[in-house]
Amino acid sequence: MDLKLDHRTEDRLTIVEVEGEIDVYTAPRLRELLIDLVNKGNFHLLVNMEKVDFLDSTGLGVLVGGLKRVRAHDGSLELVCTQERILKIFRITGLTKVFGIYASVEEAKEAHGRDK
């Protein structure tokens, strides 16, 4: 399955919806979107990965790159993910310590609201 990307902004939080496979072939599209969002002043990003079928280290690299970019603006990049097979790769690489990972968009929005 190819990669589908969409985004919307609610309050100060930009929600990026990702669907499909994030790998060496498709990851550049996600990277471009994250860079574009940051360049347009969106510094608080929430990437919803609930519809991601596959994620490899290239995709992880793109997410870490996005995190570095938003942090340079005192922003945040957090994730929504409950799929064990996707969470496993975050655990293997230790990235569960780096990203805020939530069970739903609503939960992430509540946490984001508390931090404001």
Partner: peptide
């Protein structure tokens, strides 16, 4: 993790670690 946040995002070697 620390290395990834310190240098280029597409950290070489990450795939091998996975």
């Amino acid at each position: 993790v620390d290395a990834m946040l310190g240098i280029v995002p597409e950290m070489p070697g990450l795939g091998i670690a996975v």
